[in-house]
Design a protein around this nucleic acid. Structure first.
Length: 292
DNA sequence: CATATTTGACCTCA
DNA sequence: TGAGGTCAAATATG
């Protein structure tokens, strides 16, 4: 039996969570109205607001209810609760997707485990947000190679929301690269379709050229749009940097549309695959300007 | 040297 | 008791 005072506190507690949830929704609505997701400055401000609200909501949610006795719990009991919390989150999974680029989703992840799964050819890898401790971000994801095609698809399951709001403008980070390390035993080296060795290089070149062309076309259209708005555009095709990596970074930093982002995903994946397969000569000799 | 990954041990649950 | 998820010491990497 709880007292009237405790009941009032519980009510206030629930109200606080409801209000914070409402604030999160309103922020998202406001963001959609104000900038349509195209203005980086507004985007950043909204990210910050959203992060603050989400974090507040989570903190309030985690604070013990007035009539609970968190402090008196034993370590064992606490660990059990944490485990149950994780189990609950497990069934509260947000999203599952199949992607050839499981490492590129705009966030930084840190691997914390790997397990072989019964009757599955490929192990399952467990990641949590790099900022899980610093910012109490509870986001985790599981990645498992789904097939042996080229490119291989990966099943990615996300759990919990990011409260760190640490979106990586340039997703080609050192970390993300390691996650898709084809030398890792957790990921089967992708095999090309059954084609004669002599045709292989042609296939690789065609894939790379196709990806580069797509991305750069998208990039140029972005430039022309931006230049009308007075933004400082990148160089023209002749002035492209010789470093493909730098170009990809620049392209990524200007990309805002989902489809273009996925084009960069494709490109990066191919570059990584090519690097892994010792045909760096291709990367050194190809200049994006050649394909325009 | 700081940070990330690997991997065997450990835990919980069905 | 075994499967799946997490921890944490050892190891690798930049």
């Amino acid at each position: 039996m709880i007292s009237t005072r405790e009941a009032t506190q519980a009510l206030n507690y629930n109200l606080a969570i409801k209000e914070l949830e409402k604030s999160c929704e309103l922020t998202e609505m406001l963001r959609a109205h104000v900038d349509n997701g195209t203005d980086l400055q507004f985007g950043h401000i909204f990210e910050e607001i959203s992060r603050t609200l989400t974090m507040s909501r989570d903190i309030v949610s985690k604070v013990a209810m007035p009539h609970s006795s968190e402090g008196a719990k034993t370590n064992k009991r606490k660990r059990d609760d944490e485990f149950k919390d994780r189990q609950r989150r497990k069934y509260n999974s947000k999203m599952m997707k199949l992607t050839p680029t499981p490492h590129q989703d705009g966030f930084q992840w840190r691997k914390y485990g790997e397990k072989t799964i019964l009757n599955k050819k490929h192990p399952r890898c467990y990641f949590r947000c790099t900022y899980s401790q610093d910012r109490k971000c509870m986001a985790t994801k599981q990645v498992q190679q789904y097939n042996d095609e080229y490119p291989p698809l990966f099943e990615v399951i996300y759990f919990d929301e990011h409260t760190c709001s640490h979106v990586i403008p340039n997703s080609k980070s050192t970390n993300s690269k390691k996650i898709l390390d084809f030398s890792s035993k957790s990921i089967t080296k992708p095999s090309l379709p059954t084609i004669a060795t002599g045709c292989r290089r042609e296939y690789e070149e065609a894939t790379l050229v196709s990806c580069l062309t797509d991305v750069i076309k998208g990039y140029n259209s972005e430039i022309s749009e931006n230049s009308n708005e007075g933004h400082k555009a990148h160089n023209t095709s002749n002035e492209f940097s010789v470093s493909i990596d730098d170009d990809i970074s620049s392209i990524e930093s200007t990309l805002l549309r989902e489809d273009e982002f996925s084009a960069v995903d494709d490109l990066t994946r191919d570059l990584e695959w090519l690097e892994q397969n010792d045909i760096k000569f291709l990367l050194e000799t190809l200049s994006p300007g050649n394909f325009l």
